[in-house]
Amino acid sequence: MTNEFPKPAPDITPDTKLFWEGTKNNELMLNKCVDCGFHRNPLTIAANICPGCGSRNHAEWVKASGKGKVHTFTTVHRTFHPAFEKELPYIIVIVELEEGPRFLANMREISSEEITRDMPVEVIFEKLTDDITLPQFKPVK
């Protein structure tokens, strides 16, 4: 079945390749500084520098617990991309992971009215294409 408006997929770059390999195995991978232990979101911080201590040593890839809390969210009623029209309304959430960094994703299995500040959430994985599996979040039951 072809989709006239496929959802936009994230670019896989040399810096994020291992992240997207991880999600295919249902693992949420973070970069951890080998010098100070600072965890960072591999999708927003360029690979080879630590915002915690400035170290240029290669970070190690570590698996996150997948647990965190809601920093904020929005429920989208007007989208600017046709691929998302049929999902309206959908929730975009920013989750603060136990390890420290924040992640942006969609929130599943809950309605807007039920979300509270700092509500505990956990990661789930949704296959988008053969190459990309997206981490998403749902409330901890």
Binding site: A9, P10, F73, T74, H81, F84, N106, I132
Partner: peptide, 23 residues
């Protein structure tokens, strides 16, 4: 912006500012 935000349906300033307003 860099990262995967487009894949999550974050398209434009209003969705981002809405999350600040919600916070």
């Amino acid at each position: 912006s860099p990262g995967a935000t487009v894949a999550y349906g974050l398209h434009g300033a209003m969705h981002g500012i809405a999350m600040a307003a919600m916070r």
